[in-house]
């Protein structure tokens, strides 16, 4: 009878696991059956993002479709990290696209960039003025906490890159034989060899 080798980590469909890890922190590991790690990533990465998001009252995760070489001031560098948290950060992309195309942002400007453009029509401008006022009021209310929120949300995204890599490739420590990862087919083949 074939017995699974406990030294091998079944990564199942690695691409699917990586995609799930990108969509929501920890989801890829839960799919692979690595529940403890999935929950650890969920708590550490999503928890960090959620606290950072709350510190900025949701006004610190946004994106703008601007060329950083032409308009460096309005380019949102933090979002390059925040993006990797996945679904919790992606509404910002939708809002930026809507505003860029001249449409009114949805959900009362939630996660829209606090920017007023001269070419905006009155409807869009009405929503965006609220977003801008809210973003500026944060500094008065909480001082440097908005920046702490920026850092938390950005680092959370960057940490999820490690989690995505772990879901796709297994743990990075290859020197330890028990940390060796393999796809489910490799695991089955090796388990068969050991069983013989």
């Amino acid at each position: 009878m074939d017995r699974p080798n406990p030294d091998l980590i079944p990564l199942k469909n690695r691409s699917k696991a990586a995609a799930l890890a990108l969509i929501w922190p920890g989801l890829g590991h839960l799919y692979q059956g690595r529940y403890a790690k999935g929950i650890l990533y969920l708590i550490c990465i999503f928890g960090l993002y959620a606290v950072g998001f709350a510190l900025g009252e949701g006004a610190n995760v946004y994106w703008t479709w601007v060329n950083p070489l032409r308009d460096a001031e309005h380019f949102r560098l933090y979002y390059l990290g925040q993006f990797w948290v996945g679904l919790p950060a992606w509404p910002a992309l939708l809002q930026a696209t809507l505003v860029h195309l001249g449409h009114q942002p949805i959900l009362d400007g939630f996660m829209a960039a606090p920017l007023l453009e001269p070419g905006m029509n009155d409807e869009v401008r009405g929503v965006m003025e609220k977003v801008v006022n809210h973003a500026f009021s944060l500094h008065q209310k909480y001082g440097g906490l908005k920046e702490v929120g920026d850092i938390y949300t950005t680092i959370a995204g960057l940490l999820n890159v490690l989690a995505i890599y772990d879901a796709f490739e297994g743990p990075a420590d290859r020197a330890n034989p028990s940390a060796q990862a393999s796809s489910s087919t490799d695991a089955t083949a090796k388990a068969e060899e050991i069983g013989r």
């Binding site: 690595r34 550490c44 960090l48 850092i151 959370a156 989690a163 890599y165 772990d166 743990p171 940390a179």
Partner: peptide, 26 residues
């Protein structure tokens, strides 16, 4: 704001270590 560094360092340490190893003691 200095105190906000501690949970950040804790999260970074745990996630980095988890991406390196599979066993909890390690």
């Amino acid at each position: 704001t200095y105190w906000f560094a501690l949970p950040l360092i804790l999260a970074i340490s745990l996630v980095y270590a988890a991406s390196r190893h599979e066993e909890w003691p390690r």
